[in-house]
Amino acid sequence: MIRTLWLRIFVTGFALWLATVAVTAWTGNSNLVPTVVLFGSFLVPVTFVVWAYGRGRSPGVTVELLFQAFVVGGVLGVLGASLLESWLLRPSILMYVLVGLIEEGVKLAALIVVTRYMTRRFTRDGLVLGATVGFGFAAFESAGYAFNALFTASGLSLSQLVETEVLRGILTPVGHGLWTAIAGGALFAARGRLTGPVLLTYLGVSLLHALWDSMSAIAIAITLVLTGRRWQFELLRIGRVPDVTQWQVHVYTVLNWAGLLVISLVALLWLRTIAVSSRREREILSQ
């Protein structure tokens, strides 16, 4: 039953979200906007937490602990990242690297806080709880992005809110939840100690995060190198933004999505490697 619960949650939640969007658009009732924001931001993260729990159930991972990891871990991560980024971030070529280090660091710290009383730690538990903290972070962060997308120069825009939630919902499974699952698996494989492999894993997922966030800028740079015209480089040299051709727009789009796909595949393969080792760990302990 638990293995199919995630599907029922997603179908029911998606239907309710669609109904809320339709009624909000039809009536213009702004009181329904928070419901649209919450349903759209939390549906995919909650669905994947239930899916992960169903695939990796363990006596040490209770529903109460999952709730704490999602809500407490997610909020602690968002608050910590907001504070550190406001103190440390300045426009520079290293900005995306710092964002990756900060956000992956606070999520790992939040995972350590919410699991501090666990007496037995298995790698699979770390994968599930790490993913839960990451999805909690993603849900609260997406709610903020959706809320900001609502406000435009011409007034409230339900269409922009919905577009933001759909895009972030599609990308959420290969973002925060995936990266923190990898870090959580490494942490629990080390029995909660910050060992060399754990720190290297943290740096690795931070790099994936930085590449993900900077993929648009990387795609723009590669597009200009491959298809740039002399007049465009001349305008850039004097600090002006040049117009782009339709072909360059297509090249940029392909490069951007291809880059995100490669980053996602690397992370998924890394996660699979840890999951396979966790199964071997369980087999050895059960003998």
Results as ranks from 00 to 15, higher is better:
Lys107Trp: 00
Val71Ser: 06
Val46Asp: 01
Gly13His: 03
Ile102Gly: 06
Asn29Trp: 11
Thr115Ile: 10
Ser41Gly: 11
Ala25Pro: 07
Val113Pro: 08
Gly80Cys: 10
Glu64Leu: 12
Thr62Ser: 15
Arg120Phe: 11
Val113Lys: 00
Pro59Arg: 08
Val78Asp: 02
Leu79Met: 10
Ala52His: 02
Thr123Trp: 03
Asn29Pro: 12
Ile112Gln: 09
Ala19Ile: 10
Thr115Met: 05
Ser30Trp: 12
Val113Ala: 14
Val106Phe: 04
Thr12Met: 05
Thr119Ala: 12
Arg121Trp: 04
Glu104Val: 03
Val49Lys: 03
Thr20Trp: 09
Thr12Phe: 02
Ile93Ala: 15
Ala69Ile: 03
Leu127Gln: 03
Leu32Ile: 02
Thr24Ile: 08
Thr123Lys: 01
Leu43Arg: 03
Phe10Ser: 03
Phe14Val: 01
Val113Cys: 10
Thr4Met: 04
Leu76Ile: 13
Pro91Lys: 14
Val97Cys: 14
Tyr117Val: 12
Leu43Gly: 00
Tyr117Met: 14
Gln68Arg: 15
Lys107Glu: 10
Met95Lys: 15
Gly40Asn: 06
Leu89Gly: 07
Val97Lys: 06
Ser92Ala: 05
Gly60Phe: 10
Leu65Glu: 08
Arg55Trp: 03
Asp125Met: 04
Lys107Gln: 11
Arg55Gly: 06
Thr35Arg: 12
Val63Glu: 12
Gly105Thr: 11
Leu18Gln: 12
Val33Arg: 09
Arg124Tyr: 04
Val49Arg: 11
Arg120Gln: 15
Glu85Met: 15
Ser30Val: 14
Thr47Arg: 01
Arg3Asp: 13
Ala22Phe: 11
Leu18Met: 09
Val11Gln: 01
Leu79Gln: 08
Thr4Gly: 09
Thr20Met: 09
Val49Trp: 05
Leu98Val: 03
Glu85Asp: 09
Leu111Tyr: 01
Leu83Gln: 13
Ala52Lys: 12
Phe48Gln: 00
Val21Tyr: 07
Val46Gln: 03
Phe10His: 02
Arg121Pro: 01
Phe39Ala: 10
Gly73Ile: 01
Val78Ile: 13
Trp87Asn: 03
Lys107Ala: 10
Met95Asn: 13
Gly13Met: 02
Phe122Thr: 13
Gly105Ile: 12
Arg120Cys: 08
Leu66Tyr: 03
